[in-house]
Design a protein around this nucleic acid. Structure first.
Lengths: 148, 148
DNA sequence: CCTACTTAGATGCAACTGCATCAAATTCAC
DNA sequence: GTGAATTTGATGCAGTTGCATCTAAGTAGG
C-alpha cells in the first residue's frame, strides 16, 4: 500500500467529491426552501424510525450515520429540544440512554420525504439510467467499506 | 421531473454520501496526522498553481471549487495570513483582486501531495481495479453536471 | 450624465463543528 | 475483588460556516 494513485483513481476521487457536493447542495437547498431542517435530521429520524419501539443507543446511531460522537450528542440535543426525539434511561447500562422517535418526529420525517424523494430523483435519478444507477451504487458500496 | 426515485437511485444516492464521507474522512485524517491543513487549502493552492502567473480572481476560484462566496473570502484570509497566497489589486476591475500563490504556497502544496497522493490511493485506488475506477469516474462526472 | 440594476468581495452575528477533556459506568486482567 | 483500561456520553472553548447585509465598482437604459 501507500503507492501513488493513477490518473483514473484521481479522476474517481475528484468526481466523488464534486458529485457529492453538487448533489447534496441541490438536495439541501430544496429542503431548506421547503422550510425543513437539514438532511442530518432526516437521517437520524429515519434510523430511529427503522429501529422501531426498541429505540437506539446514541453510539449505535453514531455508527449508523458516521457521525462524530460530539456532533451526534448535540444533534440529539436539538432534536430533543424540537420534540422529535426522546432520551430515555437505558435499563442495561446506566451510563447510557435509549433514543426513540416521537410522533412529531415521525410526522416530520414523513413530510420531509415528500421533498427529499423528488430531490434525490432530480439530483441523481434524472442524470442516470437504471443500469448506470445500479453500477454506480455497486461501485460506491465498495468505497464505503472500511477495511480497518 | 419531480417524480419519485426508484430503489437503485436511492441506493446510489446513499452510496454517494457514505463513500464520500468514508473517503474524505480517511484522507483528511492522514493530512492532519502529518500536520497539514485541510483539503480545502490544497484545492485552492492547486487551482492557483495551475492558473500560473496570471493568477485567478476570487470569483473564478469560487466557481472552480464550488465554494460559497463568504467561505472563499475567509479561506483566502487564512491562506494570506499564512503567507501562501497574495491578494493583488485587479487592474481591470477596481472592485476586484487577483490571487496568486506564493513560493511558500507552492512548497506546501507540493509537500501536501506527498501525503495526499497515497491517501487517495488508499481511500479509492486500493478498493477498485482500473476498469472500475474508470467507470466510476465516468458515472460521477454525469452527476456533477449542473443542468441549471 | 443620472438613476436603477447587477457583480465583486467583506463582515457582524448566530449556529455549528472540532478538539480536548471530563465524569461516570462497565469491562478486563490479575 | 480491585485497580487499570475501555466505553458512553457531555461540554468548554476556539475555529468555521451560514445568513443576511453592506460597500464599492461596473453596466444599462433613458
Amino acid at each position: 500500500m501507500s503507492t501513488k494513485p493513477d490518473d483514473t483513481t484521481i479522476a474517481a476521487w475528484i468526481g466523488l467529491s464534486r458529485a457529492q457536493r453538487v448533489a447534496t447542495a441541490g438536495i439541501e437547498a430544496r429542503l431548506k426552501a421547503a422550510g425543513f431542517p437539514p438532511l442530518a435530521w432526516y437521517d437520524a429520524l429515519w434510523e430511529l424510525e427503522r429501529a422501531g419501539g426498541e429505540g437506539l443507543r446514541p453510539f449505535e446511531l453514531e455508527r449508523a450515520l458516521l457521525f462524530e460522537q460530539y456532533n451526534l450528542s448535540r444533534l440529539i440535543d436539538r432534536l430533543e429540544k424540537a420534540g422529535l426525539v426522546v432520551r430515555r434511561a437505558c435499563p442495561n447500562d446506566k451510563r447510557g440512554q435509549v433514543l426513540a422517535i416521537t410522533p412529531e418526529g415521525l410526522k416530520l420525517r414523513c413530510e420531509m420525504w415528500g421533498v427529499y424523494a423528488p430531490a434525490i430523483e432530480a439530483a441523481v435519478g434524472a442524470k442516470l439510467d437504471a443500469e448506470e444507477a445500479k453500477v454506480l451504487a455497486g461501485l460506491l458500496a465498495k468505497l464505503a467499506i472500511t477495511s480497518a
